[in-house]
Nucleic acid binder design. Structure first.
Lengths: 202, 202
DNA sequence: ACCTGAACACCGTTCAAGT
DNA sequence: ACCTGAACACCGTTCAAGT
């Protein structure tokens, strides 16, 4: 048929899939539009039919990763239906695990300047229209409310809670996955110990 | 004189200075060797007399920034000569402040993959031959020793202490300077509150 | 020793042209 | 509608050549 040489609607999806694969294999620095096009057996200008720029394709890939990330956080929450603190600890563990297993995704979700575009302009494209990390923030707000009722050691200020919890988890994820923090033992075991020790969130 | 058109030994220093300026003004993404050369009024191949690659120049710039960073951490330690916990809290504050004031330096010191080269191959080029963050790690080791003697709430495991302290501070610095964490009030005030609250290091 | 200019292999992006 | 090929303005890097 005459469609032999055309990808039609498949190309867009293929660019995202193959682009993600290229990103995994070669890293963010070496990623190029022309390489993705070549892998898809298409001219280097063909991607412009589906994405208005290289950044636009990267954002599409980032949204795909964001979806997987949110899913893994949600699974963590579901493990402890009635225990907000444990939900946050378990989410922290999943958070670090996700980026240890996929170091390249850190750049994609947080460290590229495109991220703010995702958060500002592309929120509506995300699953359920939920902004990224809604799962995380919901738990923080719940904990803040709980702390207001029964006075514990930890704060009831949601901003203080959010920055300290997110900061710790985010920092550990980056330090470990970027290999700035070196340790002879099992990284995830150490993270687990820190999150479930008496000093965090108590 | 015949030296009119030559920079001689000055060019190397000028490339670092002007390169840093370009990095501050345009950001890491838009930084290029050819632009630095043009700013220095020199052909685009001249830098290769002094640096063997673009990465090599970036590393030289990173070492300069690393030096300033170490200095600001040292000043924080000096404020509390006999109080290890306060040294760490104050260092944490300086740490976050440094990257809030210079968001571009985060990429340079941590998030570029060149960093591991700095740490592995370029340690001997750093002031006093000290590896980066020696100041920070020294304090952690001191605290670990202190915790071993007088039993407090916080751990005596140096790895656990290092990852949790460094993780929290590093994470807060990145989340704030990358504008992932948004907050209506004064960021540094919130960081101060978190670091000096009862729950951190107690 | 220090710098230049041409050259090469890559980029992202645009645009007229083909089916 | 979807894709191509030539073209443009940028890269990093190499190398023969100039002073």
């Amino acid at each position: 048929m005459t469609n032999e040489n055309y990808h039609h609607e498949n190309l867009k999806a293929e660019l995202i899939t193959k682009g993600l694969k290229l990103l995994d294999e070669e890293g963010y620095e070496k990623f190029s539009l022309r390489k993705v096009a070549k892998v898809c057996n298409v001219s280097h200008t063909a991607p412009y039919r589906h994405f208005k720029s290289k950044d636009d394709l990267i954002i599409a890939i980032a949204i795909e990763i964001q979806h997987r990330f949110n899913q893994s956080l949600q699974e963590a929450v579901d493990k402890y239906p009635n225990d907000t603190k444990s939900q946050i600890k378990e989410m922290g563990y999943s958070y670090v695990k996700f980026f240890i297993e996929n170091p390249e995704y850190l750049r994609l979700l947080f460290l590229s300047d495109l991220v703010k575009n995702i958060k500002n302009d592309y929120c509506e494209l995300l699953e359920d229209g939920d902004p990224p990390f809604r799962t995380f923030y919901n738990a923080i707000e719940r904990l803040s409310a709980e702390n207001q009722n029964n006075a514990t050691g930890s704060s009831a200020d949601p901003n203080e809670l959010a920055l300290s919890c997110w900061g710790l988890v985010h920092g550990m994820a980056i330090l470990i996955s970027k290999k700035d923090f070196s340790y002879d033992g099992d990284y995830l075991e150490l993270v687990r110990k820190i999150l479930w020790s008496g000093t965090f969130l108590n």
